[in-house]
Design a protein around this nucleic acid. Structure first.
Lengths: 141, 141
DNA sequence: TTCATTACTTCCCTTTTTGTTAGTACTTAA
DNA sequence: TTAAGTACTAACAAAAAGGGAAGTAATGAA
């Protein structure tokens, strides 16, 4: 039997209500949402094109994430009554209002990623040096 | 400056932006991480105090998220050789460098949360009005 | 001796998110 | 008649994230 109101859900909602950050993250935090939003920042796009330019996304996920973004008021879905069907997606005003935030996230992410990579390399070098020392120590007792 | 609007260049920048964003989100995206970071922005804190001031967090989760933040170089763990034990957590330089990003996320989150709440209320009002109309219609045929 | 304090760790389970695969409706072109 | 294009939907499976409860070690106080 499932519990009707999981602690998980409750915690999530509490945190979202308390903290703007948590709310924002719950809105843009899906696996494919940053990608979709970045693409739509440059203009509207059809469903099929989104699918083709996002490498590795499944149709299910694309639809799911688009629906959530729509529900959150960030994306507008425009359906043309044609055959074959044509559906376009574009950012709403609210979606566009995310631009500064998205840019600051991206900037920090790139900075941190680069920094951590060099640190990791340094650590690897250190480890290598230690191993080398050990080996040399074993060889020259 | 020359005109450099090749699709290639554009794609490259999109990918960079997405990678940066995805990396950042993977670092701050845990359920309790924004809360922890927000608290530590105001100064160092002991483990027990963190646990007490974060409502609803389990010890398992607190430790898990702190360990991840530490691994990502955002938080420093300071252990004092005492009994009973004392462990303090504080942001590193890199952790502090998140401040502008966290603020822009929080600001947008609050803005969006507020806006969506009023919209939801308006929708509820509309629904109520519709229902009222229906009822009145039924009563006065 | 037993209890309290502190900062964890372990085990097991539930919930949430993401992925895979197949199928739908409709029309035009070959 | 069959295939191709479009924008989905449904059913099921796997993986990741999160939660609950109990246990640990060291020491001093009652």
């Amino acid at each position: 039997m499932k519990k009707m109101n999981s602690t998980n859900q409750h915690n999530l909602e509490t945190i979202r209500a308390i903290c703007g950050t948590a709310h924002a993250l719950s809105v843009i935090g899906g696996r494919w949402k940053p990608t979709i939003l970045h693409l739509l920042l440059h203009g509207k796009m059809r469903y099929g094109r989104l699918r083709r330019v996002i490498p590795g996304i499944s149709e299910r996920m694309l639809v799911l994430q688009l629906r959530e973004l729509e529900k959150d008021g960030l994306v507008r879905r425009i359906v043309y009554a044609e055959v074959p069907p044509r559906v376009e997606y574009e950012l709403t005003e609210e979606g566009l209002s995310m631009k500064p935030m998205l840019e600051s996230i991206s900037a920090w992410g790139r900075y941190h990623h680069a920094k951590n990579q060099t640190e990791q390399e340094e650590n690897e070098e250190e480890e290598l040096a230690k191993k080398l020392e050990q080996v040399l120590g074993d060889l020259t007792p």
